[in-house]
Design a protein around this nucleic acid. Structure first.
Lengths: 102, 102
DNA sequence: TATTTACTTAAGCATTGACTTAATTAATCG
DNA sequence: CGATTAATTAAGTCAATGCTTAAGTAAATA
């Protein structure tokens, strides 16, 4: 599952939101949801595979943190899409000015 | 299906990419893919419902265009997530400076 | 007006995805 | 060591998703 598909799920988006505020233990994350711990663990695996979060083992706990590279990749896509869109508007404006003979 | 789920599919992301470059007829869009026209039509409906694209009827053609509001909503989520993440870094830097007694 | 063109909607099917409970792994504590 | 705690992996279920072909709608054209 790629980054976008991973964020297509609202639970996973909320997890990313939680991790943007602070690093958290797996159980801590699960505590924010009504679903079972295994379900959250599965979501975390998907986010890990998608490069959106990182884990660090600490004793029997696993500390999850946001992977800024994953977020940056998202930003890149959005920015590029926006850039192309804006470029069209700019070209349109140029055309209008030409016709205008200002 | 919400905006993020809609963009979770790579075909739909490519459609959005195409529309960021230019408005296009339904058939024109379908021509960029190997899948059938009905499949693309279904994707377009999902993007429409998610507020990512708009349609305008012109004779028997349908002209699709990117809905910039939909893109803006995406940008908002990404920006907010980034903002919180950066906020953490800033607070960390402050703590380091305090301890530093510079 | 009959036909073609552009596109969507319907129906059916295979796959994927999210959830559950049960079982497993691994670290800590009495 | 045996029990508890933290988390993951396994197995199974059910709904949702994406695709296909067939059928339907509506505008343009011969």
């Amino acid at each position: 599952m790629d980054r976008f598909a991973a964020l297509g799920d609202s639970t996973r988006r909320r997890i990313v939101g939680l991790l943007s505020e602070a690093d958290r233990r797996s159980g801590d994350i699960a505590g924010h949801f009504d679903t079972s711990a295994p379900a959250i663990s599965q979501h975390l695996k998907i986010l890990r595979d998608a490069g959106m979060v990182k884990v660090e083992r600490r004793g029997r706990e696993r500390i999850y943190s946001l992977d800024p590279d994953g977020l940056a990749a998202m930003e890149d896509w959005v920015r590029e899409t926006r850039r192309k869109w804006n470029g069209r508007l700019d070209r349109l404006a140029e055309l209008l000015e030409e016709g205008d003979q200002t």
